[in-house]
Design a protein around this nucleic acid. Structure first.
Lengths: 327, 327
DNA sequence: TTGAAAGCGGTACCAG
DNA sequence: CTGGTACCGCTTTCAA
């Protein structure tokens, strides 16, 4: 292994000078710097992360917590987070919490002196605990806003409002909302937004459902029993299930039932060509969360505390006027 | 922060003694040990990872590389890996490589002096490079066997053989294999195993396909055009697409076409109740890979070099006799 | 069985 | 602008 001192010797300077040439180029004369850099390059010098961490107190590691990886919605989140970490010169420690408050707490405790900060999608932990964590180490929450803790929230409620207006505008008067998961911070907000945007429209909240294909298959019965002419599912896997169940019983969208999804899982290979959906910027969310975190962890000014990312409604052929108003 | 020395003072011993009491209990007298442990407990002492890493050369970090997270097959892999890491007292750095050899190489280079070893699903890197990496740091490959590098391989070829025998036994004489992804180490092996297990049966290799719902929808046409009476897809997302396309055109399984999938995505919420599939132990694979890695990284004897995990065929109602032989 | 002391590889303060 | 030096917190000889 090549150490600072090896480079120093090769360049005919002291170790301190090498350290500065690498980290504070402006404190070093042009001549020595290039000599040092050349030597470092030639010897293939690389910082020893542990040594640097011990000396500076910063590890170059960022933790990213998610409830689960099975939910394809989280994949782009992590991909974005990793990209941002890479650009910030950090590594990402990914932790799966299963949404359990205990495991979330364990995550914070275990990693507290191993990483420079946390970004986490943590529906389970009480706000007070998060504020506490944030007092000790930089913390950025995802899809959840806690007083005093910077956050990145994807505005699915805003998207739901768009869907609500869209469906109400088409003439639907009774819409089913397939909600879930239980305990989600955003779920009631999505439902409220949907209701508010469709004043003349009755929104039946069904569920909660697991974000699963089979759950969607089963949900169709309830939707039909409730006499709804349109259905909005909070997850694409659910939507896919509903669509399958519809097809299996000879129903089609939108002739028999309008269909819309609160996310668009093209990234997970689950894109359904013709379903009206919300394009959720989850990759951007992961990226922003970690960028924010890196700012917070560094002794440099951070961006705004809270960010709300807009979602885009993609109207496709699965939504149309309700059957009774069709030509 | 509580340091070793703080505990030492509290217990009335030296720092060295505390260090030993924590790491080598057998080198310390019963009395002092319990006194030290009590003091450590009371003060809430915790190792400083960076300091320890600097002194020992071991970081307590393990890297886990996967081509992508969008493929739900990888989720349980990581979950298992994380669990094993946790049990080994390590943290897991998850790296997504996109299957690109360049990014795989970057992964190894960047993390080489940050982690104690690598476990990776790396279809892209040439074997020679992997052997090289393994020479420098412990490496365990997943779903790929390279000479001189320990590996965990899921025996999907064995599972394919089971499917082949199953379908041939039902009387199918022309079976479609929806293969992919291009460049996979296992894909040709799966196909070969399928062929070999169904001697009297023509296996049409279609594709390669992306593991996507839409690809499955499109694939049905090719399957029918090829005149096959059964289809085996390498991925559940594909299978789901095929199933949807079948349903949409009024075909059903197995009356019109038998359907089987080389994986079973119940973990990803994509379980399809009635499709014959292989239960792939990916969670176990992730777990074993990291257990093996932890053994390799520690100065203790490691397990066997190569492990082949059997897969289980779950016969469900989507596979049956071909139409022309049906009663 | 225990303590003292020498690093592990860098960083940063203090002189010069 | 540069070199010397004192740590950062823990592990590990080496002696006692």
């Amino acid at each position: 292994m090549v150490r600072l001192e090896d480079v120093a010797r090769a360049a005919g300077v002291s170790a301190s000078t090498v350290s500065r040439a690498l980290a504070r180029p402006d404190m070093i004369s042009e001549a020595t710097r290039s000599r040092v850099l050349e030597a470092a390059e030639r010897l293939g010098y690389r910082h020893h992360p542990a040594a640097r961490a011990l000396a500076t107190g910063r590890t170059g590691l960022l933790a990213f917590g998610v409830p689960s990886l099975a939910n394809p919605y989280h994949a782009p989140l992590i991909a974005g987070a990793q990209q941002a970490a890479e650009e910030a010169g950090c590594e990402l420690v990914v932790v799966v919490t299963d949404g359990s408050p205990d495991r979330e707490a364990a995550l914070f405790a275990r990693l507290a002196d191993r990483v420079d900060g946390f970004a986490a999608l943590i529906p389970g932990s009480p706000a007070a605990r998060l504020a506490e964590v944030a007092a000790g180490l930089p913390l950025v929450t995802l899809d959840r806003r806690v007083r005093g803790v910077p956050s990145i929230v994807i505005d699915t409620p805003g998207g739901m409002a768009a869907l609500g207006a869209h469906l109400a505008g088409l003439g639907h008067r009774r819409v089913a909302y397939l909600g879930g998961p239980a305990g989600s911070w955003l779920d009631p907000r999505r439902l409220a937004a949907l209701r508010e945007a469709a004043p003349g429209c009755e929104v039946r909240a069904l569920g909660p459902y697991l974000p699963e294909y089979q759950a969607g298959i089963g949900a169709l019965d309830e939707v039909l029993a409730a006499g709804c002419t349109a259905v909005v599912a909070y997850s694409s896997t659910l939507t896919l299930g509903v669509l399958y169940a519809m097809t299996a019983r000879g129903l089609s969208a939108p002739a028999d039932l309008s269909l819309a999804s609160a996310d668009d899982l093209s990234a997970a290979g689950l894109a359904v060509p013709d379903v009206t959906a919300l394009r959720v910027p989850s990759r951007a969310a992961g990226r922003l969360a970690v960028e924010r975190l890196a700012d917070l962890a560094a002794p440099r000014p951070a961006g705004p505390a809270h960010t709300l990312l807009p979602v885009e409604m993609i109207v496709r052929s699965s939504s149309g006027p309700p059957p009774d108003r069709a030509p």
